[in-house]
Design a protein around this nucleic acid. Structure first.
Lengths: 113, 113
DNA sequence: ATAAACCATGGACTATGGTCGATGGTCAAA
DNA sequence: TTTGACCATCGACCATAGTCCATGGTTTAT
């Protein structure tokens, strides 16, 4: 499918798709026509982009998401231990929460003094 | 005092001082010499920079800190209601904590499914 | 006199996740 | 055929808080 179609189906802008493409996060992107330079994006990319959006909700960086995709692409049969991935992300989130709570405490102390 | 001295007394690098200066967060900066272009930084800037560092610990942005300085500079006698400033910052922090806790919950749910 | 240490300016670079515009080529419908 | 919608690339820009480099002038100490 062309970029406009992928944009519609995935819900992200053309620019964003090109941005992901530049980061090499998409798959099966080809330029199949000799008479123009239009690209064809494999339909798997709809799902890829959904996964990106999903993981971003858990504060995964694009770089991390790309690494997961790369692992999967290099070794399609090997199952990624999602639990581990999420657990390490959980730890980071919990650390951030702790830090913010420290800040909160300090602020409360100032306000109540 | 010259920038090197201010750097020593405030504990931030020359570059950082110039960065703050570019943001117009410093005061009484002059070029008093005719024979060179060295600048003179008023000694109040030591305190300014300490305040910047202090407020940054509570996740104040430089822009916000500058606004506080600007208020004070425009109206030196009027007392800034610090309590209000910190309270509104507290609310933002608490909102961030809440959001992270939501993310944490969602992550836990995924991990435990 | 010469080297080291200091000063100034300006611009590039870091990470993050895009967005926007310019330019130019192509495709589809009226 | 011409207009509008689509496609491509490239580069600039946003916020954030600096850091680092190049270039060139000055001051201080030896």
């Amino acid at each position: 499918m062309k970029i406009g179609e992928l944009s519609k189906q995935s819900g992200v802008s053309r620019d964003t798709i090109r941005f992901y493409e530049g980061k090499e996060m998409l798959t099966n992107v080809s330029q199949p026509f000799e008479w123009n330079n239009y690209k064809d994006y494999g339909k798997e990319n709809v799902k890829r982009i959904q996964i990106i959006k999903y993981l971003q909700r858990f504060s995964f960086k694009l770089k991390e998401i790309k690494e997961l995709f790369d692992q999967k692409d290099a070794n399609p049969d090997k199952c990624i231990d999602k639990s581990e991935v999420f657990k390490s992300k959980l730890k980071i989130i919990e650390k951030e929460i702790k830090e913010l709570q420290e800040t909160r405490k300090a602020l409360l102390k100032i306000i109540n003094d």
